[in-house]
Simulated assay, not measured.
Amino acid sequence: MRLNEIRYNDSVPIDGYGPGFFRIGGTIIRGPVLVFPTGVAGWDGFTDSAAILDRAGDVDVVFVGTGAETAHLPADFREALEAAGIGVESMASPAACRTYNVLLSEGRRVAVALIPI
């Protein structure tokens, strides 16, 4: 088996998560958070699509971590992002963290919006 070292260049990976927090680029952040390749921002949850739309030109897809379990996204939240040309995928937060890191290491234009477990 061939192993490759993962490189994130100047991007910010998600290092870990636990009850109520995420560790991103070595910093513990409590509560919901948005992670873009260029940095981290607070997030007010599904009522806050504007925080993502403000950076719509930076990403092609947003992974939405809905906590410990996968949940349906509110229609108005999903529709606002899709109208701006951003793909939206919901999944449990642990899966969203892993997916974000893998695609980030490939140089993809992705972001993740996370609700803690």
Rank of each mutant, 00 (worst) to 15 (best):
Phe21Glu: 00
Arg78Thr: 15
Gly87Trp: 09
Gly16Asn: 13
Ala83Gly: 09
Leu3Tyr: 14
Arg55Asn: 13
Asn9Thr: 11
Val61Gln: 07
Ser93Ala: 15
Phe63Glu: 04
Asp60Asn: 10
Asn101His: 06
Ile14Ala: 10
Ser49Pro: 15
Val112Asp: 09
Phe46Glu: 06
Asp54Gly: 07
Ala75Asn: 07
Thr38Ala: 07
Ile28Phe: 08
Ala75Arg: 14
Val59Trp: 01
Ser105Gln: 12
Gly65Ala: 10
Pro32Glu: 05
Pro74His: 06
Ala68Asp: 11
Ile86Phe: 04
Asn101Leu: 03
Ala41Pro: 00
Arg108Asn: 01
Gly45Gln: 06
Arg108His: 04
Leu53Ser: 03
Trp43Ser: 02
Glu69Ala: 13
Tyr17Val: 03
Glu106Tyr: 09
Gly45Ser: 11
Ala84Gly: 10
Leu34Tyr: 01
Arg55Gly: 01
Pro13Arg: 07
Phe63Thr: 05
Ser105Val: 11
Val110Lys: 00
Ile28Val: 15
Ile14Ser: 13
Ile86Asp: 08
Ile29Met: 03
Phe22Thr: 02
Val62Ile: 14
Val64His: 04
Phe46Thr: 12
Gly25Val: 04
Asn9Tyr: 12
Ser11Met: 10
Val102Tyr: 11
Ala95Phe: 06
Thr47Lys: 11
Met91Thr: 01
Asp76Met: 05
Pro74Thr: 10
Asp15Arg: 08
Ala113Phe: 05
Thr47Asp: 12
Glu106Gly: 11
Thr99Leu: 09
Ser93Glu: 09
Phe77Cys: 02
Arg23Ser: 06
Pro37Thr: 02
Phe77Met: 03
Phe36Leu: 13
Arg7Leu: 09
Glu89Lys: 10
Asp60Gly: 11
Gly42Cys: 01
Ala95Asp: 11
Gly107His: 10
Gly18Phe: 07
Thr66Trp: 07
Ala84Thr: 13
Asn101Trp: 06
Cys97Trp: 04
Leu34Glu: 01
Val40Pro: 01
Gly31Thr: 01
Val12Arg: 06
Ser11Thr: 15
Val102Cys: 09
Ile86Cys: 04
Pro74Met: 11
Thr70Glu: 11
Ile6Cys: 02
Glu82Gln: 15
Ala111Ser: 14
Glu79His: 15
Thr66Ser: 09
Val88Lys: 05
Arg78Ser: 15
Phe46Cys: 05
Gly87Ala: 14
Val40Arg: 00
Ala113Gly: 14
Leu103Pro: 00
